[in-house]
Design a protein around this nucleic acid. Structure first.
Length: 278
DNA sequence: CAACCCACCTGACTGC
DNA sequence: TGCAGTCAGGTGGGTT
């Protein structure tokens, strides 16, 4: 479901709603999502205070203070959502369908809902959170200065994989999923199937800029809502109004008016303009 | 290593 | 109305 802009929007929503709040209770409605949930460590969060909400790739890192500082690592998978309910009777609220865990912050209730259960919840020591097996091999953040055309050019030289597949591999660069890969490639006028090593230096600069611009604009718009994604306050994203190719098979290309094509690449639907993208 | 394919899971939608 | 098939914003893990 969520790519970087959606997760970043959730991060901001959580910060706004919950920063500084103290955990009064936690509830787990099942012992696992994609992986087992460390039940004892989750219960150990009771009494600690939320001191920050960070994001690395598509992971949310909820920072808690306390005797030993803990970090809750949350991934939304394809269908995960976080909601903040404003209530004084949090514990009286019955779980909604597919609600798998909740954290009761007193006046606010954080609820995790994920029908497909591809998401994750772990609790780890804050001091060593970057060494977590799910975080340690990740590539750079696309909105950091380390991600640019020179980086992309260097990293693609010996890679024969299609450039879209390369962009969506978090070992190369994080946060770019199926929507924003398609949108960035359209903006850079690069064909998704082009072997990564065949991009020119110029194309790498155009593509890095396109990735950054697309993600920045999507964050500004509060993300893209197509079916599932909504913010912690149940608001929709607005970036779907700016999509040029994603989900637009047969509709006219915004540049040349040729119909947008859809094909399958590495098992994912891929949208592009045959005339504009070479 | 790189590349490929599968699995994990539910719900929405399509076409017969 | 039912049912089979397809698809969905992710990604780790196993195999070649």
């Amino acid at each position: 479901m969520p790519e970087l802009p959606e997760v970043e929007t959730v991060r901001r929503g959580l910060t706004h709603a919950l920063l500084g709040a103290r955990v009064r209770a936690v509830a787990l409605f099942r012992p696992d999502l994609r992986w087992p949930i460390p039940v004892a460590r989750v219960r150990g969060l009771v009494g600690s205070r939320l001191s920050g909400v960070d994001r690395r790739s598509k992971y949310l890192l909820l920072r808690f203070d306390g005797d030993t500082a803990n970090t809750a690592l949350v991934h939304l998978g394809m269908s995960g959502r976080l909601f903040v309910a404003d209530t004084r009777r949090a514990r009286a609220l019955p779980p909604v369908p597919h609600e798998h865990w909740r954290i009761d912050f007193g006046r606010r209730l954080l609820r995790y809902v994920d029908p497909r259960r591809f998401g994750a919840l772990d609790v780890i020591d804050s001091a060593t959170s970057e060494e977590h097996r799910l975080l340690r091999d990740l590539g750079p953040e696309p909105l950091d200065t380390t991600f640019d055309g020179a980086f992309l050019f260097a990293e693609t030289r010996r890679r024969r994989t299609p450039i879209k597949t390369f962009l969506m591999d978090a070992k190369n660069v994080v946060g770019v999923g199926n929507i924003y890969a398609a949108e960035a490639l359209f903006r850079a006028r690069v064909r998704p199937t082009l072997a990564a090593h065949r991009l020119t230096r110029l194309a790498c600069h155009a593509l890095a800029d396109a990735v950054r611009d697309t993600l920045r604009q999507a964050v500004s718009a509060g993300g893209t809502t197509i079916r599932d994604y909504i913010g912690v306050d149940s608001s929709s994203g607005r970036f779907q109004q700016q999509l040029a190719v994603y989900g637009r098979e047969g509709l006219p290309c915004p540049r040349c008016h040729d119909p947008i094509r859809r094909s399958s690449l590495a098992g994912r639907s891929t949208y592009y303009c045959r005339r504009c993208q070479r």
